[in-house]
Design a protein around this nucleic acid. Structure first.
Length: 360
DNA sequence: AACCAGTACAACCGCGTCTCA
DNA sequence: GTGAGACGCGGTTGTACTGGT
């Protein structure tokens, strides 16, 4: 248990930051930028190590932070992203504008994790309850049985796949990180045929190295702060108070990240039928629709494979489908506003989503 | 009022990765 | 190619706060 190398050189203060220290740091970075963090404390007149300054700035003082409690939509998004990405908090936080990895991690450990454990249910079940607390796990699960695109109910006990990697190879999707294998029994249970690549879809960009196709202008994004860039990949940054999303196309960070799980069929896709079975009509997918359709709603399952060909698009779809958050500066857009002019929804779902409140 | 347990979250730490001389 | 320093990430700890007794 030692200190940072930069802290060994001089006596540094530790512990909570005082308002005066905050002010010094804000003033310095506002005027000069942080540059080399190791030199920031000296130049800013702080008795702190550079690492501590960096952390304080990133997690607390940065002006684009949202702060405040997490909205139900953000909570649901975190749960779903965690299901996909595991404990990669920085990756998760990139999809929650104004939130830091530390904040997301703390929220997970203090609230969500506890709730999942106390409920004694899988994250899947709890997620469905979060989205629509009026739908029981049994009801949610029964909706799986009534989806004509799924395997017969009698086979749904066979959710465990001894060697999921062989299944993934069938999708030509590469490797999985070990901790993500835990989810495969959920994600791949009702396994469809391999997803065909759509090589000549005009609305899609050139293929990524993984063979995925990236939709252009599915969302309109603005990267507001170049310092937040992710090696050129542009996570969805939004324009602060205006809840407005402007500019550019989706890019995928999959290229440089061998740990990123490529296109697995997701439970939501399976449930709402967005798996590759037929149809050439493109449609938008509401990943949450399946969580709210099990009881009284009339549901037509979409059958089109043209969407969600990888997990990042899947995440984007989740974010698009989330209703505007009352407390958030909007990581989420309304579904309608996220629809591209050329693609209209081809499926009918009675959402009947009650307003939910996050009550850990 | 005092104590205690639980909670939230700020901050620290170690380690892996990156950059550059 | 290599080593040192910087950076970034995830796990963990420490502390302030809150509510119950």
């Amino acid at each position: 248990m030692g200190h940072h190398t930069c802290c060994n050189k001089q006596k540094v203060k530790r512990g909570l930051w005082s308002p005066e220290e905050d002010e010094k740091l804000i003033n310095y970075i506002s005027a000069y930028g942080h540059g080399c963090w190791s030199s920031v404390p000296r130049l800013a007149g702080l008795q702190r190590c550079g690492k501590s300054c960096r952390l304080r700035w990133i997690n607390y003082l940065r002006p684009d932070l949202k702060r405040g409690t997490f909205s139900p939509q953000e909570a649901a998004l975190i749960i779903e992203l965690h299901r996909i990405l595991g404990n990669r908090w920085s990756q998760i936080a990139k999809h929650l504008p104004g939130r830091t990895d530390n904040e997301v991690k703390n929220f997970w450990n203090s609230s969500i994790k506890k709730k999942l454990i106390s409920d004694g249910l899988s994250d899947l079940a709890t997620f469905s309850n979060l989205i629509n607390p009026n739908v029981s796990f049994e009801g949610f699960w029964s909706s799986l049985n009534t989806n004509p695109n799924l395997i017969p109910a009698a086979q749904q006990d066979q959710v465990y796949i001894a060697d999921p990697s062989s299944i993934l190879q069938g999708f030509n999707h590469g490797d999985l990180k070990a901790d993500q294998m835990n989810y495969i029994h959920v994600n791949l249970a009702p396994l469809p045929p391999p997803m065909p690549l759509l090589l000549d879809t005009p609305s899609y960009d050139s293929p990524s190295p993984l063979g995925c196709y990236q939709p252009q202008h599915q969302h309109v994004l603005k990267q507001e702060d170049s310092t937040l860039s992710n090696n050129g990949a542009a996570p969805p940054y939004y324009t602060g108070d205006h809840h407005e999303v402007i500019n550019t196309k989706i890019t995928l960070p999959l290229d440089d990240d061998p740990l990123m799980v490529p296109m697995m069929p997701k439970l939501c896709e399976i449930i709402n039928g967005s798996m590759p079975y037929s149809s050439s009509v493109a449609h938008e997918v509401d990943p949450f629709a399946s969580f709210s359709c099990s009881q009284s709603g009339s549901t037509t399952y979409p059958l089109d494979p043209n969407v969600l060909t990888n997990q990042m698009e899947y995440i984007d779809a989740i974010m698009s489908a989330l209703p505007p958050s009352s407390s958030s500066s909007s990581s989420s857009m309304s579904l309608s506003s996220s629809l591209s002019p050329s693609s209209s929804s081809q499926f009918v779902v009675n959402h009947n989503l009650p307003s939910t409140s996050w009550d850990p």
